[in-house]
């Protein structure tokens, strides 16, 4: 097994030795382990990409009347405000797209888990919105999904990606790291630059707890997808500017995993801590039991 990797260091080593990008290592690794053809794998990625695109469109469509229990409509508000945004309209549009997917997810719409349903807005928003600005075609965006997958595999392998195991840092943090690395490669950044971007994205939200009101994937999840997308863009920009993560990617991943283990169970999707435990959070939770 020539293309299997367990860490960022191993990934970079294969990439350097073969002279190939992170996305190409991921593609060959998947072919090697699954025995599937390149075309077959790219076709599945393309199919997932189309569902991702549709989930953004649905969430930003004024005709979409599907709502979650506590959420819906904020993605459109953000999009309409984009022209006046302090962070620039392209960043605001990306954030709106991330919220759109999270709202579609909350309203029982169709999404692609990346890496989970709760954090499913970040990667599509970053890849598709920024890809559009760079005039990237769908094949290039699928390359981005491969790069994101490589980073996600390393985090899942050495830490965790579920809110119930490691808090929100493990879900939206991983999604932001995946998106940051993908966008870096899409912007012609080197493989080690992509891992710096991923490391910074994880560092920026280390320790973030999972505290969903009423146990539902809505509050604060929709807004955590918003900040996750912004985090990914910022981390990518810092890395492309030549800023490095002082702590190497692999050590950041392990640190995140340990923080997740040390995190109190009240902060790991049990809806017993943080925002879920506030008076308003508790009142809203009582209202939504047995009701939708």
């Amino acid at each position: 097994m020539k293309y299997q990797f367990q860490s960022g260091q191993e990934l970079l080593q294969i990439s350097n030795e073969e002279g190939i990008s992170i996305s190409e290592v991921m593609l060959r690794s998947e072919m090697e382990h699954s025995g599937r053809s390149k075309e077959d794998i790219l076709e599945e990625l393309m199919d997932n990409l189309q569902v991702m695109k549709r989930s953004i469109e649905t969430g930003l469509s004024p005709e979409n009347n599907n709502r979650g229990v506590f959420s819906g409509g904020d993605a459109i508000r953000m999009l309409r405000f984009a022209q006046n945004s302090h962070m620039g309209s392209s960043m605001a549009k990306t954030v709106a797209a991330a919220m759109a997917v999270a709202e579609v997810n909350a309203s029982m719409g169709k999404i692609v888990a990346a890496p989970t349903a709760g954090a499913s807005g970040i990667l599509p928003a970053v890849l598709i919105c920024c890809g559009r600005e760079q005039q990237a075609d769908d094949c290039t965006l699928c390359r981005g999904l491969l790069t994101a997958g490589a980073v996600g595999c390393i985090i899942a392998q050495n830490a965790c990606i579920a809110g119930a195991s490691g808090g929100c840092q493990a879900e939206t943090g991983t999604a932001a790291a995946m998106a940051a690395a993908a966008l870096t490669e899409l912007s012609q950044g080197q493989p080690h630059t992509a891992l710096h971007a991923a490391a910074m994205a994880l560092k920026n939200c280390m320790g973030l707890i999972c505290d969903p009101v009423g146990g539902l994937v809505e509050c604060p999840c929709v807004k955590r997808n918003a900040i996750g997308a912004a985090n990914a863009l910022l981390s990518c920009d810092m890395a492309l500017a030549g800023i490095e993560s002082l702590i190497p990617f692999d050590e950041v991943v392990c640190a995140m995993g340990r923080v997740g283990q040390q995190m109190h169970p009240d902060f790991k999707e049990t809806a017993r801590g943080g925002l879920a435990a506030t008076p308003t959070g508790q009142r809203l939770a009582e209202q939504c039991v047995y009701r939708r």
Binding site: G68, N105, S107, G109, I111, A113, P115, G118, L145, G149
Partner: peptide, 24 residues
Amino acid sequence: MKQFHLFDLIGPQMIGPSSSHTAG
């Protein structure tokens, strides 16, 4: 220990909001 692969991270396609409470 479970080995993670590409489509564990990019997928599955599912109806939200929760992989355990809805998809499962």
